[in-house]
Simulated assay, not measured.
Amino acid sequence: MARMKFICDSERCIECNGCVTACKNEHEVPWGVNRRRVVTINDGVIGQEKSMSVACMHCSDAPCMAVCPVDCFYRTDEGVVLHNKDICIGCGYCSYACPFGAPQFPSNGTFGLRGKMDKCTFCAGGPEEDGSQAEFEKYGRNRLSEGKLPLCAEMCSTKALLGGDGDVISDIFRNRVVRRGKGSEVWGWGTAYGKAPNPEAKPEKKAETESKS
Rank of each mutant, 00 (worst) to 15 (best):
Ser95Asp: 01
Asn84Gln: 09
Lys116Leu: 07
Leu113Gly: 08
Gln104Arg: 05
Asp86Ser: 10
Gly90Val: 12
Leu113Ile: 10
Leu82Ser: 05
Arg114Pro: 00
Cys98Met: 10
Arg114Met: 14
Phe111Val: 12
Lys116Glu: 12
Ser107Trp: 06
Gly101Asn: 05
Leu113Ser: 09
Tyr96Val: 12
Pro103Asn: 04
Ser95Cys: 06
Gln104Ala: 02
Gly92Cys: 08
Arg114Asn: 03
Gly92Glu: 05
Tyr96Met: 13
His83Gln: 14
Cys98Asp: 06
Thr110Ser: 06
Lys85Val: 15
Asn84Ser: 11
Val81Trp: 00
Gly112Arg: 12
Pro106Glu: 09
Pro103Ile: 09
Thr110Lys: 12
Phe105Met: 01
Phe100Gly: 00
Pro106Gly: 05
Asn84Trp: 08
His83Phe: 13
Ala102Asn: 03
Phe105Ile: 07
Leu82Pro: 00
Cys88Thr: 07
His83Trp: 15
Cys88Gly: 06
Gly101Glu: 07
Gly101Gln: 04
Pro106Arg: 09
Ala97Cys: 03
His83Met: 12
Thr110Ile: 15
Asn108Gln: 12
Val81Leu: 07
Ala102Asp: 06
Leu82Ile: 12
Pro106Ala: 08
Gly90Lys: 05
Thr110Asp: 09
Ser95Arg: 09
Arg114Gln: 14
Lys85Met: 14
Tyr96Asn: 07
Phe100Asp: 04
Leu82Gln: 07
Ala97Thr: 02
Phe100His: 13
Gly115Ser: 15
Ile87Pro: 00
Asp86Asn: 15
Arg114Asp: 00
Gly112Tyr: 08
Phe111Trp: 12
Leu113Asp: 11
Leu82Val: 12
Tyr96Arg: 06
